[in-house]
Write a protein that binds this DNA or RNA. Sequence first.
DNA 1: ATTAAATTTCGGTGTATAACGAAATGAAAT
DNA 2: ATTTCATTTCGTTATACACCGAAATTTAAT
Lengths: 116, 116
Amino acid sequence: MLIEEKAKLFKALSDPNRLRILKMLQIRKLCVCEITEVLDLATSTVSEHLSVLKKAGFIIEEKDGKWVNYMINTGSSDTVVASMLSMLPFWISSDPAVSSDLNKINSVDRNNLCSR
Amino acid sequence: MLIEEKAKLFKALSDPNRLRILKMLQIRKLCVCEITEVLDLATSTVSEHLSVLKKAGFIIEEKDGKWVNYMINTGSSDTVVASMLSMLPFWISSDPAVSSDLNKINSVDRNNLCSR
DNA sequence: ATTAAATTTCGGTGTATAACGAAATGAAAT
DNA sequence: ATTTCATTTCGTTATACACCGAAATTTAAT
């Protein structure tokens, strides 16, 4: 694999909001509007972050009715992707924003979120 | 450690030229003009890349007469920095540009390089 | 079929950054 | 002290990207 592509993998991880998304998805699969609610960003912004993570191979998507579920790509054959995903729980654990995020996704419910 | 700072660590690794520099420094310590010769960039550009890697904690510098030697920071207490440095040899091994770099640093000599 | 809702794509804006050459800095040799 | 040489800093330019709101798309429900 070319070094430019490895660099792109690290670039995908170089944004705090994308790291927060990965941490949340390591708890459970989430739709765009749930992530949007927690991060307090525009839906389009979250969608673009998800697109970056997906292109890099860190996450995959799954259609679920009117929602799109995003989840961690546990089956990646790329060594970097696989190791990064397995290291993330140890590397990022005590950040206050992340802790708050992980609390929120327990109470977040896609059925009364998006159209208010 | 805040997640913004973790993101910065990945950002430091998100540039192909900086990855190439790290790979070279894992062979031996190098001065700015040697790295410049191998990467074929402006000296100022290389200096800035080194500054990014140093601020992130991946490398350290050492004065050596009129030269400045840069070397891998093997003593980092940051888990991410330490693991990334130890993983790099496995993650990036077969890239043609990197292989060429590693060959070049064997023949590169700071004493007849910079002022030609 | 039409409407409604979730998501993606698009256009625009401001900021970050990779690159360069030139000027400034610092150290060594004359 | 002055010159030389390696490196850093600065000013500039071009590109990348994070963000938003609006428009387009896709899917579900009426």
